[in-house]
């Protein structure tokens, strides 16, 4: 049977009315349950821009207002003047980028010569990092270079990153790195 869009809507309309429909050959029950979450009482819509390539397509994120407050689905934004609702094979899979069991959810620490990670608190990790930065910077800070010119830099630390950050974060990041005296500052733009 050829399933036209019209026929599909008729069938699924019947399903949402609570009847079992065998006409399209698969169970629409889970889809209906999923769709019910999208009503405006139980979900919210926010606009985002796809984090992958540089076309800058608009997407709409639907997330639950209660329970785990996680993402229900992500779709192309029809009002975005570039993509007009379309997304590619990467953008269309955005849901799996956000809701992914492999995501990092806790700060971790690997001690020198250790064979494993140890979960740590944010406060512990940032404290320790700040101390490392200070130790390294204070031990290797260069006021003057070999020719005696003032350079005020910490060339014993380096950074790579990141085009994955928002503009405001990029600016903050460069501000902190340069205040620390870093000159080895690089990122994806040169690779």
């Amino acid at each position: 049977m050829e399933l036209t869009r019209r026929r599909f809507l008729q069938l699924s309309g019947t399903l949402f009315a609570g009847k079992t429909v065998g006409g399209i050959g698969f169970d629409l029950g889970p889809m209906a349950a999923h769709a019910r979450q999208l009503d405006s009482k139980s979900s919210r819509e926010t606009k985002t821009i796809c984090p992958f390539c540089s076309v800058g397509c608009g997407a709409i994120v639907h997330s639950r207002l209660d329970g785990d407050r996680r993402t229900i689905k992500i779709e192309g934004d029809p009002d975005h003047v570039i993509n007009r609702g379309s997304l590619c094979s990467k953008g269309a899979a955005l849901y799996q980028f956000v809701e992914n069991e492999n995501r990092l959810t806790q700060p971790m620490y690997r001690a020198p010569y250790s064979t494993e990670w140890k979960p740590v608190s944010w406060d512990w990790a940032l404290d320790k990092i700040a101390h490392r930065i200070k130790q390294t910077r204070d031990a290797g800070f260069t006021y003057r270079n070999d020719r005696g010119n003032t350079v005020n830099r910490a060339a014993n630390m380096a950074s790579m990153g990141s085009a994955a950050m928002n503009n405001e974060e990029c600016w903050l990041y460069q501000a902190l790195l340069r205040a620390l005296g870093l000159v080895y500052i690089e990122h994806q733009a040169r690779l």
Partner: peptide
């Protein structure tokens, strides 16, 4: 130039290069 990352233009604009 068709840039590779969604914000590699912005990160370059904001000086994340030496």
């Amino acid at each position: 130039a068709l840039r590779g990352h969604n914000n590699v233009q912005g990160s370059t604009d904001h000086g994340l290069l030496f």
